[in-house]
């Protein structure tokens, strides 16, 4: 995982990717804070996503609607998906991510769905 909670997950296919800002941006990742977090196959990624979602819900200041409500709706959808719901909640999660990214006031809300969406898209977590 690159760039901390607001960054994104790189998958096994990305192991040779140079840690370079421009190169990472090309493939939809970010260097962010510079953190590289390595997860092996024993890590419970669903639990990681729950923790990231809870983190952003907790960190939202509450000023704008997309982040204030989006972060809690994101967390709720992840909890449901972790319990085994399907496609409808995945598409809900995508919808929430789009609005938070496009309409939040600050960078926190705009990036609050990054890690979660990258885990869904690149690693197939929650699917």
């Amino acid at each position: 995982m690159l760039g901390g909670a607001a960054g994104g997950f790189a998958g096994p296919a990305d192991l040779d990717l140079p840690l370079d800002d421009a190169r990472l941006r090309e493939v939809g990742l970010t260097l962010g804070s510079g953190v590289v977090m390595v997860h092996d196959q024993h890590v419970d990624l669903v639990d990681q996503l729950r923790r990231i979602a809870a983190f952003f819900r907790d960190e939202s200041c509450g000023q704008c609607v997309p982040c204030r409500v989006g972060t809690i709706r994101q967390e709720e959808a992840i909890e449901r998906l972790a319990a085994g719901t399907g496609e409808a909640d995945l598409s809900l999660l995508r919808d929430i991510a789009g609005a938070m990214r496009d309409a939040s006031i600050c960078g926190l809300g705009q990036t609050a769905a990054n890690a979660i969406q990258s885990a869904v898209v690149r690693l197939g977590v929650l699917t």
Binding site: V65, P66, R68, V69, G70, D95, I96, G98, A99, D102
Partner: peptide, 9 residues
Amino acid sequence: HSRRMVLEF
């Protein structure tokens, strides 16, 4: 999409 989501939120 953003307007719809804000209204739903």
